[in-house]
């Protein structure tokens, strides 16, 4: 249990531990089986908003309101704080480790920096220019970094940081971006109530508009042997909207609205290797949607609403954070249990 809103949670790649941070600045590592907490940082007053664990489970990074980027080495029994980079006047709210290299990309106002875990220094700084960085996402193969902001997305090639990025126009401000799990598509959720999807080889996106509000988060399902076509889910207001691309080019994309939640949807995540979609809401419920269509299960436990979600990499456990600092873990075929 933490003492304020759980802003982000993440599993270590081996699924043995769960990390979470809160709106009063706490960072806690929980043992995935026993729930035993290890406090990396106690409450600070100022919020932490982003947390990410490196591909090999070696590093954990956080950022927040104080403008401090903190990096812990968490392998082994006793985690230790490795580096703290302070930035005055900047609120750090997006950061992500490269899925294949110990490289952390983080937004720093109108810039993005990449911190290299090998040299333990900032390896590069790129200028987004158009606005503050609103979101960033590494390509699943780790060779590209997409960065979003007002009016555009920019894609840099890793290790060619000095080259001009590819620019994709978005119309409004792009507030959330996500690559398809195989990297073949890139999606952008925008503040003008639209969703854009680019095929990697093509610069003209598909556009879906008419959302009830800005599109705040996007999730892609992993293609399965049965369904090779991509399935995308997006949240806006109290709704989840799914979009499926037919194999028949004449049909194109079909949308479905999942509107069972009765308050703001705060997070969505597909179970790895399936089309089971989990959605968390301020209405104090988590729904598990079979094939992202029908409610298969309802999970409860938070009195004030859920704020965040994370599946472990094998899809056998789902963790959620709550408004009051609660941490929940549900495992397949067991009842929900709160711990921490």
């Amino acid at each position: 249990m933490m003492s304020d809103y759980v802003t982000a949670i993440a599993w270590t790649p081996d699924n043995s531990r769960l990390a979470a941070c809160s709106a009063c600045g706490e960072v806690v590592l929980y043992d995935g089986k026993t729930g035993t907490p290890t406090v990396l940082q106690a409450a600070q007053g100022q919020s932490l908003d982003a947390l990410s664990i490196s591909h090999n489970g070696q590093f954990l990074a956080t950022g927040g309101q104080a403008g401090i980027l903190s990096i812990w080495e968490i392998q082994g029994q006793s985690p230790r704080l490795l580096a703290q980079l302070e930035h005055s006047r900047l609120w750090l709210d997006c950061l992500e480790w490269n899925p294949h290299h110990a490289e952390l990309a983080f937004g720093l106002g109108r810039y993005v920096q990449v911190w290299d875990g090998l040299t333990q220094t900032v390896a590069t700084t790129v200028h987004f220019e158009a606005s503050s960085v609103l979101d960033l996402a590494w390509h699943p193969q780790g060779e590209y970094l997409a960065v979003s902001g007002n009016q555009s997305l920019k894609i840099w090639q890793r290790q060619q940081w000095d080259e001009d990025p590819q620019v994709l126009a978005t119309g409004g401000a792009s507030v959330a971006i996500a690559w398809a799990t195989d990297g073949s598509y890139l999606a952008s959720g925008n503040n003008d109530c639209s969703l854009l999807v680019w095929d990697r080889g093509c610069s003209d996106p598909w556009r879906m508009s008419g959302f009830s509000g800005k599109v705040r988060q996007i999730a892609w399902s992993t293609p399965t042997p049965k369904s090779k076509t991509p399935l995308i889910a997006a949240i806006s207001g109290e709704d989840i909207v799914t979009w499926t691309k037919s194999t028949d080019p004449d049909i194109g994309w079909t949308a479905q609205i999942l509107d069972s939640h009765e308050d703001k949807v705060t997070a969505i995540a597909f179970q790895p290797h399936s089309q089971l979609l989990a959605s968390a809401s301020e209405d104090t419920r988590i729904y598990l949607w079979h094939k992202a269509q029908q409610i298969a299960q309802i999970l409860k436990g938070s009195s004030q609403g859920f704020s965040s979600l994370a599946w472990n990499s094998s899809g056998t456990a789902l963790a959620a954070g709550g408004h009051q600092g609660e941490i929940f873990v549900w495992t397949e075929s067991t009842q929900g249990k709160g711990f921490g």
Partner: peptide, 11 residues
Amino acid sequence: RIISNLMKRRD
């Protein structure tokens, strides 16, 4: 950005 982040706090 600021208001969305601020509103997450309990106090």
